[in-house]
Amino acid sequence: MSIWLLLIAMACITFTSRYLLLMQSVPIILGPRVRRVLTYTAPAVLTALWVPIVFKPSLSLSEVIQPSYLVAAVVACILSRLFKNPLIAVLVSFAVFVFLNHFYEVT
């Protein structure tokens, strides 16, 4: 039962964060300066999300720079600039990652 309560509480929190500023009744007018800051939302948030996955937060360099993550991330960077379709970058870099990870474990 407590898991269901947890689920509902989570749904309320996440939905509120999404809906709150969409509401007409929330009386916020965004000025031109705030709007210009907001144009950087997508690159800033998405980068803040992926960097700690690729570079594990740690004080030991060998944990921060893991070959499979680093190489696959570089492949993703290059392919995403070469091809307009992001799927190519995602699929190929993930394949590289899985291959290197496997290789790494075996050796």
Partner: peptide, 19 residues
């Protein structure tokens, strides 16, 4: 298994071309 890399790759593909 490192499945979380797929999401990193997705976000890279979404951000890097925009730089």
């Amino acid at each position: 298994l490192g499945l979380e890399f797929a999401i990193a790759a997705t976000f890279i593909a979404l951000t890097v071309p925009g730089i």
